[in-house]
Design a protein around this nucleic acid. Sequence first.
RNA 1: CGGGGUAUAGUGUAACGGCAACAUGCACGAUUCGGGUUCGUGAGAUUCUGGGUUCAAAUCCCAGUACCCCGACCA
Length: 425
Amino acid sequence: MRQSKLFTKTQKESPADEVSKNAEFLIRGGFIHKEMAGVYSYLPLGLRVLNKIENIIREEMNAIGGIEMKTTALQNKEIWEKSNRWDDKVVDNWFKTKLKNGGEIGLSFSNEEAYSNILKQYISSYKDLPVYPYDFKDIFRNETRSKSGIMRGREFYWKALYSFSKDETEHNAFYEKIKIAYQNIFKKAGIGHLTYLTFASGGSFSKFSHEFQTITSVGEDTIYLDENSGVAVNKEVLNDEILNSLGIKRENLVEHKAIEVGNIFSLGTRFSEPFDLKYRNENGEEKLVIMGSYGIGLGRLMGTIVEVLSDDKGIIWPEFIAPFQAHLLLLGDNEIVAKEAEKIYEKLLKNGVEILFDDRLGISAGEKFADADLLGIPWRAVISARSLKDLPESKESGIELKKRAEEKGKIVSLDELLDLLKPRI
RNA sequence: CGGGGUAUAGUGUAACGGCAACAUGCACGAUUCGGGUUCGUGAGAUUCUGGGUUCAAAUCCCAGUACCCCGACCA
């Protein structure tokens, strides 16, 4: 994509009403636009990042048997009444609205009810199980206090997968599988080294659950980490009984602020009971389906990556998350250099490299560098009179290539560049 | 939902109760071309909304709204 055609622009000043680093860099870089507290639009660059995250999650979910679908944003009151979660006394941050005929509906708050209701129509035999449907969708929650940029929103984009299993054994096997899948996701997202599987409260569903907590100062949770084993416990469930069961000692624990980037729950029969979600086993007996719920907030994950991976100049996107693989900068106003840059851009496009081409005219080198640092694309390729001259053989294009995360770059030829940026399969 | 704070060009900020200013961004012209280059010209504001005090309110007072922070909540 040509930067001259990108309608968003970077801004030098941080927005006055944002304190968190993720909001500051994402707004300054033109990744997101704030509509109101806790509600952000994703601009072209931001959407590309979101799509990268979505695809990573999709791959991992599909790899363990996930089947993608799409549920509605408008949710049926009657279904929620079955599970007793429609009442505002039970769920106090619903967004609800009215139909013309006076009937009430809810804006998608969560998906257990919708999935239980849909799957009831299709599950009747042990042969139909297990099944792991999931979707990506916008979730609406009337938060009394949204905060920290895109870390906690009133509207947010998430992935939710629900597991439907025949029994506890089958359920537990999948539960362990998805733990690994989540670890893969956070590793690819570049925050694996700071993300810990954390023992946590089960909320209103079950006694315990597991959270994936990423250590960061903007975190809303406090976790206690045993650095030897890598096992963490959320403050809310920290007690001797749990420590004993996990085999960790209180004196080895280190306290950290952390943000919950993923959460996995066993639901048991909490929803299969009210929805009468049963199957018939080999002996003709009726059994309740065992369910589980597995969520990841994509916006929050994006915000966490920015919080954790940035420096004073801007974002440092990890390879698989970055909006583009490489940022091609044309410096100066020399026509020959500009033509060479065009040629290189076209060649990179043909080779399937995702590239942002800073072809803007009349912008100083310093400003282009500053923008490149702010946008945080992993590779920066500079074409200038100098880079062309510095190539030893001087027959091919000399390109100065530098990693965003590193100080020094090197001059490479176009072939070397193509090789380094070869799209990963 | 409790507490604290803030609200002025697109953005960031200034302005004793007395002509709303500066920087940046934007437009135009020149200059420069490897870390937000320099100079000139110009456009850009119902000072959040409503009320009050006053000869006079961006400024003081009241109410509302929005936003930020702390806490509570967080399926």
